[in-house]
Computed example of a mutant assay.
Amino acid sequence: MGDFFSSLIYPFELIVAWIMYGFHSALTAIGLPAANGWTWTLSIVGLVLVMRAALIPLFVKQIHASRKMQLVQPEIQKIQAKYKGKSDPESRQKMTEETMALYKETGTNPFASCLPILVQSPFFFGLFRVLNGLEGIASGDRDPIGPISRTLAAQAESSTIFGAQLSEKFIGADSVQVQLVTVVLIILMSVTTFTTQYQLMRKNMPASALDNPFAQQQKILLYLFPIIFAVSGVNFPIGVLIYWFVTNLWSMLQQFYVIRRMPAPGSKAEAAMHERRARKGLVPDTPEQRHELEHDKEMAEELHEKVSGQRQQPKGKKRNKKK
């Protein structure tokens, strides 16, 4: 099983190694020391930037999937209320069938929001294996990974930030600096993740989507993630924790931008956006803004029409022009 996992992850190790090597070469070309910990740290940051930029199309799909999930929550609640208290297999099966039929009818995919995480996971483990194997490559006990030669591995393995080596972990560390840097990174990871989830739930969810099992699950995850980071973070090299933190920071800033500029229909963020525009005396004056508002309205109307079976009456051209 271990050999199968290694062969499965190895292509991602190569991609990670080449991206880090490319950034490291560029940074040393502009004068940064090759064996310096900050040079390798910036190479890891560069890896995050490349990865997250490549995932932007998936993130856009995730936004639309999340909005659809929010809009169909009232209908899902009706299905759940219909079978409330019925625990027999037949009723549970019917409830599942009706829920899946609703998802199919409205084009909603409850798992679409997981796509960016799933795509990132192999690269995360690839980075873990690259950093974990630096000592073996430097000593000659392990074969080089792509461009990471013995010389580069020795440089990366011995490089430090705040006195802690990038390849060291909290578990088994003899240095206080390693433990301190690990704890600080875990705290930063927890804060950025908490902030991302908190602003998503408090600002970018309509009131109808806050009182349902999906929202309750989000609340649980809000407080569960810091515990997960604390338990798992002590087992990862500092370089992986840096990758994790920068990824979370990207997600937080990206989410902040989306909530501010493209809020979900009916959410507090949408009301705040209209208030800001009203104070400035602005209306949607660019094609992008008009397209986004029209898209949100059309998506909400289309989903409402599908789940309720009621078609909205078309407006006459003259009446529409007056409006």
Results as ranks from 00 to 15, higher is better:
D3I: 13
F5Y: 14
S6E: 14
V16M: 08
A17E: 06
M20A: 07
G22N: 00
S25A: 12
I30A: 09
L32T: 12
P33M: 08
A34R: 14
G37F: 00
T41M: 03
L55N: 12
L58M: 13
Q62N: 00
I63G: 01
S66G: 15
V72H: 06
Q73R: 13
P74L: 01
Y83D: 09
K86F: 11
P89R: 12
R92K: 08
T108K: 06
A112G: 10
A112T: 12
F123E: 02
G136C: 04
S139D: 02
P144R: 05
I145P: 04
R150D: 05
R150G: 02
T160V: 04
I161N: 08
G163C: 05
Q165L: 09
E168W: 07
A173P: 11
A173G: 08
S175T: 14
V176M: 10
V178H: 02
Q179W: 03
I186V: 11
I187K: 12
V191A: 08
Q197E: 11
Y198I: 03
L200R: 13
L200H: 12
A209Y: 06
A209M: 07
P213W: 04
Q216C: 04
Q216N: 14
Y223C: 05
Y223N: 01
A230W: 02
S232F: 12
N235T: 08
V240G: 03
Y243H: 04
S251G: 11
S251P: 14
M252A: 11
F256S: 15
F256P: 13
G266W: 01
A272R: 09
R290N: 01
E294P: 02
K297M: 12
E301M: 15
E302C: 07
H304G: 15
V307C: 14
G309F: 00
Q313M: 12
P314N: 05
K318A: 13
N320V: 15
